[in-house]
Design a protein around this nucleic acid. Structure first.
Lengths: 252, 252
DNA sequence: GGCCCATGTCCGAAATACCAGACTACAGTT
DNA sequence: AACTGTAGTCTGGTATTTCGGACATGGGCC
């Protein structure tokens, strides 16, 4: 009552949502008691929730460790989601094929609000894989894809859209807005975007835009490769990405 | 009170679970009013639920059509699930590679209770794809994989385990238990299983077991191909599957 | 045996979410 | 303009759920 209480909200469910979000943030099987403590919910409530969710297969209970984590029902629902988005459905096979044929990690990325979002990720075949989790969001300026995803915006729009802090890299370096705008123009002109040593020093990202019929970049396909990859190798990869993007850009 | 009321169950959540299951069974974006009618819940309750779930991104609301369907949060949770199961995590790339390199639909399958379950599915490159949805369950006797997944059981155990009705194919034909047992023995001896024209007349399934260290078949990798695929092509595919299964069978 | 700690269940008073149904808004039809 | 149907919101009283805390169980350790 004292807080903003939006009408028409089923607050009873907040517990479930909080619980699942908690597990998602931990990204690891968790003991029920810990769930209760860390999420601040009453122990008995969490036990009830978990019992119910395990029955529904939303969660798996691992007897041996006494922990819970996401269950198969989430996989089914997630799959339904992927299939329901036309672009993503088509891109699934394409991204898998990119990773399989080239052997490097391939991704499909989109914007989510003012962040860059990894929608699909297929790991490459390296012993030490460079790979990020699906659902990960990072600041737009940290990525090659980011330079394409906002390439329809004016400098002023970009200044408004991207938070000031997002121009600071993980190691503290700052990307100038002018530099960013320059990268963007280059990428737009060449039809691909390359960045090296941004998120970490050893990685190069190669990204190519997937555009809608209005020419707006709605997604990117990209490879994440070691920085020492040769220019010729990179050229081949970019050509592969462009073929792939072309298939996604003009769908049947 | 009048029904069995298991203690320690959070019945308030049943509404959410029912709602999501309903969407999953429909496998299509659905108008809220329809959800309410078909699931037998009060309209106002469903509106509240949907509002809350859309906020949490568990559901997407599609303005243009006035429908709801699964949202990105489900994708993230589903991915967490896949990553949490060691075998499945490893198999993701492998299955993608199978489909990409051979160009036919590849799957990872496991048992779920007494049914055969499609856990991973990567569609091949054919114009008319033979492909089933992840999460689909079918009777064990309908599939090549099924013959491997129960190959540790005795005839009596199998009779107990597989429901009588599951030996009836979609077109009404009945598979004899003896015939099934024979297939099973052959498959076990040869290290792969082949069935033709079971689920439908035009399809052949080729399956290879993924075994745990005790030698028990915990999963299969398989190709689903047109029945007219030549014997040589099939032999190559089986070799490919066996390589793949070997990598999954002896993990690091 | 006695103690401690963790997991899991149970209870009932207190809090609150559920839901029937009224209501607004808008669009199409007669 | 009146009528009908559909989409969505709002409200209040009560039936239901929540949750603090007690209880039960089962190690592990001295």
């Amino acid at each position: 009552m004292n807080e903003t209480t939006p009408t028409g909200r089923a607050r009873g469910i907040d517990r479930v949502i909080a619980l699942m979000d908690h597990l998602h943030r931990r990204r690891a099987p968790t003991r029920i008691a810990d769930l209760a403590r860390d999420s601040g919910m009453p122990r008995s409530t969490v036990y009830e929730l978990v019992n119910t969710l395990v029955d529904a297969r939303w969660l798996d209970f691992r007897e041996t460790e006494g922990t819970v984590y996401f269950g198969p029902a989430m996989h089914y629902f997630g799959n339904d989601y992927l299939d329901s988005i036309d672009l993503i459905r088509k891109a699934r096979g394409e991204v898998a094929q990119l990773a399989a044929s080239v052997g490097e990690t391939a991704q499909l990325c989109m914007l989510d609000g003012n962040k860059y979002l990894v929608v699909l990720n297929e790991a490459g075949r390296r012993m030490f894989r460079i790979s990020s989790d699906v659902g990960v969001k990072v600041p737009i300026p940290w990525t090659a894809s980011g330079r394409l995803l906002v390439d329809h915006m004016s400098p002023d729009e970009i200044r408004d859209f991207i938070p000031e802090d997002d121009f600071v890299l993980p190691d503290g370096r700052r990307i100038g807005i002018d530099e960013f705008m320059g990268d963007m123009a280059t990428a737009h002109a060449r039809g691909f975007s390359r960045t090296t040593g941004l998120v970490d020093r050893f990685t190069t990202c190669l990204a190519v835009p997937v555009r809608d019929l209005a020419g707006r970049c709605v997604a990117t396909v990209c490879f994440v490769v070691p920085a020492e990859t040769t220019a010729e190798e990179q050229a081949t990869m970019i050509a592969t990405l462009q073929d792939c993007a072309a298939r996604l850009t003009f769908p049947a």
